[in-house]
Computed example of a mutant assay.
Amino acid sequence: MDLRIFTEPQQGADYDTLLKVARATEDLGFDAFFRSDHYLRMGAGDGLPGPTDAWITLAGLARETSRIRLGTLMTAATFRLPGVLAIQVAQVDQMSGGRIEFGLGAGWFEEEHSAYGIPFPKEKFGRLEEQLAIITGLWGTETGKTFSYEGKHYRLADSPALPKPAQQKIPVLIGGHGASRTPRLAARYADEFNMPFSSLEDTERQFGRVRAAAEEAGRNADELVYSNALVVCVGKDDAEVARRAAAIGRDVEELKANGLAGSPAEVADKLGRYAAVGSSRVYLQVLDLDDLDHLELISAQVAPQLG
């Protein structure tokens, strides 16, 4: 099972902090460093020093790391025009030497849109679908040819469809709990389907829907990677687990029920249960970005148990 580190910088983290986490991610043998795409803190606290932009962050990390994959869970379709976003992501892929993965979601947090003057449309899913068609269409257009698109929300005329990513195809991630439209969209566009913060039962049910949608669309369902995102809180003993839970304002028993919490053996066992329902990759949501010893413990005592 691939273990990836997933951060939430809108809760209060500057670029230097994210760089330290990304370098630890690389040095400790994790597969990838991902981050959210938000501009406003959620929950209590002041959010200092303020938000960082996802793609500016990843551009910096692209030049300061060498092995790990880099990406977003998930870029908000409401934040950027699709043509501009296609340029940004392709450029960062070039800067990384072809290590970018692209998660795109509809956008949902209305308060951050209000706080920073970003329009929050009523119809978001249709925009997401058009953005996926445009971005993948731009990247997939043969060099020397042009790309045009006529949709309800976006129109492109005779785009040169440049620049091209370093990779022949940037992996596209789609995720969510929707029972019909989300699986259909994943079947059409996704290389990976991610189930965020979900139980084993809900994960198994949604993976089944996505697999069925893929087969209905004429794809081999095994072509997709199936993954989860779960908050992580590991300790060598109960006292260390409790200390780490308190540092992120969470209850140990709640974390054990809804995330990955406990001793290395307990967490490895639960990861094994997610693997049994089809998950081959887990994004470990790390909420205390100053606790690099936490990452070292997971690398040394959880990852080796996963085979």
Rank of each mutant, 00 (worst) to 15 (best):
M1G: 01
L3M: 05
A13N: 15
A13P: 03
D16E: 14
L18I: 15
A24Q: 13
L28V: 07
A32C: 11
R35S: 13
H38Y: 03
R41N: 14
G45W: 02
P51Q: 14
A54T: 13
T57A: 07
T57M: 04
A62L: 03
A62I: 07
R69H: 08
T72W: 10
L73N: 11
M74E: 05
A76Y: 02
A76I: 07
A76G: 06
A77P: 06
T78F: 01
V84W: 08
Q88R: 04
A90N: 08
Q91T: 15
V92D: 00
D93Y: 01
S96C: 08
G97R: 10
R99I: 06
G103P: 08
G103H: 05
L104G: 11
G107W: 01
E112L: 04
E112M: 02
A115S: 12
F125L: 10
F125I: 12
E130A: 02
E130S: 02
Q131D: 09
Q131L: 01
L132I: 03
L138M: 14
G140H: 09
T141P: 01
K145P: 00
K145M: 02
K145Q: 14
F147K: 03
E150H: 15
A161C: 06
K164V: 14
P165T: 08
A166P: 04
Q167L: 01
P171A: 09
L173C: 00
G176C: 03
H177K: 07
T182V: 12
A186M: 11
E192W: 04
E192R: 05
E192M: 11
N194Y: 01
S199Y: 13
L200N: 03
E201A: 07
T203A: 02
R205Y: 12
F207P: 00
G208K: 10
R209D: 02
A212S: 00
E215A: 15
E216T: 04
E216W: 04
A217W: 00
G218W: 00
D222M: 02
E223T: 01
E223F: 04
V225I: 06
L230T: 05
A242F: 10
A242Q: 15
R244W: 00
A247Q: 00
I248M: 09
I248W: 06
G249K: 10
R250F: 11
L255P: 11
A257E: 10
G259P: 12
L260C: 09
G262Q: 08
G262W: 14
S263H: 08
V267E: 14
A268W: 13
D269E: 15
K270C: 13
L271E: 11
L271F: 01
G278N: 07
G278E: 12
S280A: 13
S280K: 11
S280D: 07
L287Q: 13
D291A: 05
D291S: 05
L297D: 09
L297N: 09
A300F: 02
A303S: 10
P304D: 15
